[in-house]
Design a protein around this nucleic acid. Structure first.
Lengths: 319, 319
DNA sequence: CTTAATACGACACTTTTTGTCATATTAAAA
DNA sequence: TTTTAATATGACAAAAAGTGTCGTATTAAG
């Protein structure tokens, strides 16, 4: 028992030093060099990746990453980790993919047969659905690392106008609907631009780095504030209520009457009129917009234009 | 060293037996009863929750959950677990929430200061964005457990027609766009129905259970096959190409010409016409549908109806 | 060719672990 | 009520594991 404790202590010490000689450890722990060598043997048998160099100015080095002291987990905790992993299943590209698999494997081998079955089963009974994408996003890890380090990067971007060169400082990365996005600060334009990570090519990390001024989280929180407040008033049928409660930007603003019909009276973002137009268009007769007039006009204008386009076409075909 | 290994072996044995006497262990491991008692003392000092009962027909019992043997993780692996956890941050309700926090805490305390900072930082630079929902979904864990056990359940459901009583066997649960769904097999209707978990009330687990015939995974995989194949042909502007590449059901079917314009010629699901109509409506002049005629009619019909509704209303107000 | 490191075997010494025996206590079964 | 089978704990000697001190090899920098 005493030995295990000392082994753990030595592991911690080694982790922080990364490179050391047997003599150093012997003095640190009040042991003989021979014993230290025996301890190191034990540790590498336990899985610590040690590398030694003989000769003057030689010594030991820990390869790869630091290793945490042994931790006791309950099976329930292990299950919960497998559960969390389900949330990543639908992503085509992920940073840390190899590490997660290694960690899960370590848990898995120690699970009881019964729990192994439960975990296997779980992946068949839980899903965090996201559209399956086939787009490659090769620079995810680089974008993340650059944002953590506060470094500027340079890349080619497929934009509306074709490929353009960008020089920006990424704030972080986020996944939405199966795609990865990267908001990044452009020094030239003095504002944050939003990029789709799969449209980024030939990325280079620049040496220029700066203290982080803005993080992804802050940006996500402040972004919705840049809005043009506009009053929205809509009457809803029973089915309209159901549909509107299903979208996050409306769910808290739907008032329901006794008869099951509903009414929306709230302030929304005037920049989102296009999105709102297509949303209420889909609802058809289940929603009737009273305000704003601009939204009604947008919908009518779009409807007329659509009719014109298809009717004309039908006309030409008939002639 | 020999002792630690034997302690681990004993831990594993105890985990599977759950209830045992010192004599049993002594025979199993070829040790004296006295030594076994000393081992058990060590194990409970390490955190194994043991309970003992004196007297004839007494013995030991493990309380609570099984404990896994000590595992060595690298710091990178620990980081990857924190990363996976980010994917769950935006969910309002989660099964296993307490366990995940307990597990993360165990990792966190052993991380080096440097890595603690990295992990703290990460949550500010990565997000798996999902609409924030405020709907309570209290029966998530019950739905999951019932699906794993293959049990029937009974509940009240808020449907279009008001509250109705359902008796079904859940296949599993899945999250989509921040909401939890539960497909479940109805014996009455002899088919799988899809429920929104937040609309489920007063759930009761029934005793009736059956061997699983279908899992969530299988259902998700087979579901899209129940389609009505229909030919879709669309011409796209440069911007239309960009937009269509951004949606999963089209991204692989967009052909791009040299001039940047594009063309879609594929087979899709005829049941999705409503959704497709609203999608192409949003694209406006950037997409021109050639086939199917039904889709064009749907769009035109909807446009006419929309115009009629709003123009009339404007008329009555003017009078 | 000296020095400072790893590598490892041998052996005596020290510490820890283990088994045995003794004794107490408890609760079910005879 | 007595027996029996379990836990609980202490003491002590025997066994095993761990440790320190040698000695010897090997390696590579100075």
């Amino acid at each position: 028992m005493a030995k295990s404790r000392r082994l753990v202590d030595m592991l911690m010490f080694i982790n922080t030093k990364r490179t050391f000689t047997a003599k150093e450890l012997a003095e640190e722990f009040g042991l003989s060099v021979r014993t230290v060598q025996r301890y190191l043997l034990d540790l590498s048998e336990l899985g610590l990746p040690l590398y030694s160099e003989k000769g003057r100015s030689g010594g030991y080095r820990v390869l790869k990453n630091r290793i945490l002291p042994p931790i006791l987990f309950t099976e329930e905790e292990a299950i919960s980790i497998f559960f969390a992993y389900q949330a990543l299943q639908y992503y085509h590209d992920l940073p840390f993919d190899a590490e997660i698999h290694a960690a899960l494997q370590k848990f898995y081998v120690y699970l009881s047969e019964e729990t192994k079955k439960k975990v296997d089963k779980m992946s068949a009974h839980i899903a965090f659905w996201n559209p399956k994408r086939n787009l490659d996003t090769p620079y995810l890890k680089e974008l993340l690392e650059a944002s953590l380090a506060g470094k500027y990067i340079e890349f080619l971007y497929d934009s509306k106008a074709g490929q353009t060169r960008k020089e920006v400082k990424p704030l972080g990365i986020y996944a939405h609907n199966g795609l990865w996005y990267c908001p990044a600060y452009s020094y030239d334009k003095q504002k944050v631009l939003l990029f789709r990570a799969d449209r980024i090519h030939s990325l280079k990390v620049l040496e220029k780095d700066e203290n982080m001024s803005l993080t992804l989280k802050e940006w996500l929180e402040t972004e919705p504030v840049n809005s043009q407040p506009i009053s929205l008033k809509v009457t809803l049928t029973h089915e309209g209520v159901r549909q509107c409660k299903g979208v996050p930007w409306l769910e808290n603003h739907v008032k329901v009457a006794r008869d099951g019909n509903g009414y929306i009276d709230t302030i929304t973002d005037g920049n989102e009129l296009n999105y709102m137009a297509s949303f209420f268009y889909t609802l058809g007769a289940h929603a009737f917009i009273e305000e704003p007039q601009e939204l009604i006009e947008k919908i009518c204008c779009h409807a007329e234009e659509t009719l014109r386009r298809y009717k004309n076409e039908v006309g030409t075909k008939d002639e």
